[in-house]
Amino acid sequence: MDYLIPVAIAVFSAVAAILALEARRMVYGAISLALFFAGLSLFFFYLDLPYLAVFQLIVYVGAIAVLIMFTVMIVGEKETKEGRLSLLLLGVLGFITIVGSFVFAIEYFSSLPVAQTAPSFNFIDLSKAVVSQYGLLLIVLACLLTASAYGAITLARREEVQK
């Protein structure tokens, strides 16, 4: 009963993720993917990481889900033979194996020094980490994003056909 809220969010997100992959119409898949992203941001709100949750909402729901939906609308609904059941079985089996190994590993996780009095979130820690500790990484990420925007525009631009 203690874990009611995270389990409920997890069930919601898992159903959304499976629907995203298995929905017969692609647009419904894209909608469920957006719901999955929103479910992840609910997780971050539950974990008291508000900046991460808001960032997830803005980037994933506000940008990536819209981009994906736009692409789905351009590409259209031509679904071919997909969704093989044996692979679903394989996925379930793999999940059971992984979870089983984790359940055995819980002994280890239980002995980890988990913070009993969880530190509360503050922006100073985060900004110190982003700007000073990982400052170089931030610059690399900025270059990567610029390059990817440039590359995406170059790829998707329709070239004028000269005759």
Partner: peptide, 22 residues
């Protein structure tokens, strides 16, 4: 609670790998 969250993220990982394969 950490173990619970690790199990959840494993679940999502399994779903993603299944989609990637199939």
């Amino acid at each position: 609670e950490l173990a619970i969250f690790i199990i959840f993220s494993t679940l999502f990982l399994a779903i993603g790998v299944y989609g990637l394969l199939s």
